[in-house]
């Protein structure tokens, strides 16, 4: 069993209205040096070992479901063995 961490973020070219609203709030709190805020998603998967290549599997499931690659980028980390 492996723990996979997937980080999904909006592409640079896509305006993030949530991030902009949070940045405005941070500026109102006097954190004037915050230059940009981008909000994304963090997804944890626990995956049993299988015959399939885990990297290929993770990329396929990200491309198909977890991320929408029209507007989002993703990266992932495959962690150490998880004891079940």
């Amino acid at each position: 069993m492996k723990k996979v961490k997937v980080f999904i973020t909006l592409k640079e070219s896509v305006l993030d209205p949530q991030g902009q609203a949070v940045m405005q709030s941070l500026h109102n709190m006097d954190y004037k040096n915050v230059r940009d805020v981008r909000i994304g998603k963090y997804i944890e998967l626990e995956m049993e070992d299988s015959a399939a290549d885990i990297k290929e599997q993770v990329e396929a499931l990200c491309d198909k479901l977890l991320a929408n690659t029209v507007i989002e980028n993703y990266r992932y980390e495959i962690g150490e063995e998880v004891r079940s």
Partner: peptide, 17 residues
Amino acid sequence: LLEAGLLPGAMLKNRDL
């Protein structure tokens, strides 16, 4: 339809949230 790829593009949250 967008998610299914039957139409091009994607949806974002409304500009004013």
